[in-house]
């Protein structure tokens, strides 16, 4: 089996970085601008001098011309917690390569980009609940933990994005950038969980991973359609007409998902597993404003 991540693949990610749309406070120094003033080299604004300000930041040229004592403030660059929420339900093992494998490699790439950007990266696999996590940490040493966890992730169980996100919010106390990697093929709902995330202030990126057989199925004949998560079955005689109806139904479902995410300003990227991961990262994620 292809490794989750390798040196060559990482080398091709050298020029990329994760984009955060808003300013976040962060806890430690990083590369993302913070709403707080800081001590970076990037000028932010002037303000009136108040007692206790450091004399070194008084702009004496302004004082000479305007006779006002103004103090320069600088952008504070802070780190960012990046949460990688990876769906590990049974439906993710379908396809060749499996959606779970595709998600693992994508998660590893995002983890690498986050750690290289001095961010804290944590891995939160889930099914209908949160599985054992890799807590967010700095440094490339964290990469080993993340990759190790991704290598050993089994796909099983049902999906419940609502329950998993609710549990995630309760366990992680700091808002950050949340990458939600899932096929979103569940009728259990996702709106409540996403609402909790958004309410907490997390910036959410949804990457929906689907196989080509799910997007454009080719099966024909008399088959027993089986849900891998619920084991529900329905016998069908499938022909071109049936497949056209399925694709129409899937399109409606995806449109509804995209509409919801768009209404809540959640970034969305569709990741078919027959699209090479490099193409996804370099083209689709960059085009979606998620990476730069």
């Amino acid at each position: 089996m292809e490794p989750v991540i390798d040196e060559t693949f990482l080398a091709r990610l050298a020029n990329l970085k994760v984009i955060v749309k808003g300013r976040r406070k962060g806890r430690l120094a990083g590369l993302h601008p913070s709403p707080r003033a800081g001590v970076s080299v990037e000028f932010a604004d002037y303000r009136d001098y108040t007692s206790g300000d450091d004399f070194r930041y008084i702009d004496w040229n302004i004082y000479g011309r305007l006779d006002r004592v103004l103090v320069k403030s600088f952008v504070h660059e802070a780190d960012l917690p990046i949460y990688l929420l990876v769906d590990l339900s049974a439906s993710m093992r379908l396809g060749t390569p499996s959606k779970a494998r595709y998600a693992a490699r994508l998660a590893a790439a995002l983890a690498y980009l986050g750690l290289r950007g001095l961010d804290r990266v944590g891995l939160y696999p889930f099914t209908d609940r949160l599985l054992p996590i890799v807590a967010p940490r700095h440094g490339m040493g964290q990469m080993t933990h993340v990759v190790h966890a991704l290598e050993r992730m089994p796909s099983a169980g049902k999906t419940s994005i609502d329950r998993a996100l609710t549990e995630f919010v309760s366990k992680s106390h700091e808002s950050g950038l949340v990458f939600l990697l899932s096929d979103f093929l569940s009728d259990a709902g996702y709106e409540e969980g996403l609402s909790r995330l958004l309410h907490r202030g997390d910036e959410v990126v949804v990457i929906q991973i689907l196989g080509p057989e799910e997007l454009r199925p080719t099966i024909e004949g008399s088959v027993l359609v089986t849900d891998v998560e619920t084991a529900g079955k329905t016998p069908m005689v499938i022909g071109r007409g049936t497949l056209a109806l399925y694709e129409r139904r899937l399109g409606a479902y995806l449109a509804k998902l995209r509409a919801y995410l768009s209404d809540h300003r959640v970034s969305y990227v569709l990741a078919p597993t027959d699209v090479p991961l490099e193409v996804l990262i370099h083209e689709r994620l960059r085009a979606g404003g998620i990476l730069q």
Partner: peptide, 28 residues
């Protein structure tokens, strides 16, 4: 019985009409 097709979500397939007039029916 072994002609099974596993899907991620059954709700997308349920209640889809069969396609008896298609080539698939002839194959059956």
């Amino acid at each position: 019985r072994r002609q099974r097709h596993e899907v991620s979500a059954l709700f997308l397939w349920e209640e889809l009409p069969n396609d008896p007039r298609t080539r698939a029916a002839r194959i059956r």
